[in-house]
Amino acid sequence: MAVDTYEVKAPAPDGEVRETARPRKVPLQVRLLQYRWLMLLLLPGVIYFVVFKYMPMYGVTLAFKDYVPVLGWSDSPWVGLKHFDRMFTSPDFPRVFWNTVVLAFLNVVIVFPMPIIVALMLNELRVTVLKRMIQTAIYIPHFLSWAIVASITFLLFAYGDGPLTLLVERLTGDTESILTDPAWFRPLIILQTLWKSVGWGTIIYLAALAGVDASLYEAARIDGATRMRQLWHVTLPAIRSTIIVMLILQSGTLLDTGFEQIYLMTNSLNRGVAEVLDTYTYYMGIEQGAFSYSTAVGLFKGVIGAVLIFGTNFLAKKFNQSTLF
């Protein structure tokens, strides 16, 4: 049991501060020698990132070329910003970009907090058996592919006789064509995402919650704090750093709305709101064969992602919150 006590921690032991201050005066080669074992541990990972992440990055040059496969990567002609020009003047692009931004926004405000809320609720559940059963149950959907999720959605929301269509009809009094109505598209997508990912998302928060020191609750109870107050003053502050790190990490991939899910839910009647950057790149790259153009769109997405992730990290630092580094 003693092994587990590391979770109890006073914020930042000052030993670390001393460590950072000292090496500045020491020459680099001495420091490298001093940390040779750490460097050795680091090496395989660094090689991995160089080989599998950075070497393929020459691929982005494609965005500035007119790629002809026969000529190969290096001999295809440079065309400068032609593809970016086409992107920003395309009649489709503003709509596609807007659709992506709206979904990203909904993902942040609705999908992101849900696993936290559910994890907190599970944490309050005192019946261990029930807790474990529910935990296992809600994480099952993570294993079903989007194709299955889509077909189940089609079944439940079928026009006319889908069980949930009937429910909506009862509630609103209207016969809705949920699967094709553009107004229903985003709610459906968010609902699917929640269903599939909330349970899985709770794992990391539950792990963090389990690490909260029990004596803090004891102290709070002695002070007469209600459960709600304990939640607010003990539990939430304890997992705040986890939440912030998760938020920063996810901000970078905000514009990744997922390809398959959206692709499967798109139809002729809702395409106006359904098409997002991920599906657009697919249509252009795989179906239309415009590799260079779709690379340009991907690059644009990457730049925005980089700005977002480094930006939020900077903000977190500024407000003295946990950061990635």
Partner: peptide, 12 residues
């Protein structure tokens, strides 16, 4: 998992 992990550090 029950033993818990805590991630993210308060900047020191």
């Amino acid at each position: 998992f029950a033993k818990g992990i805590l991630i993210g550090a308060v900047k020191g």
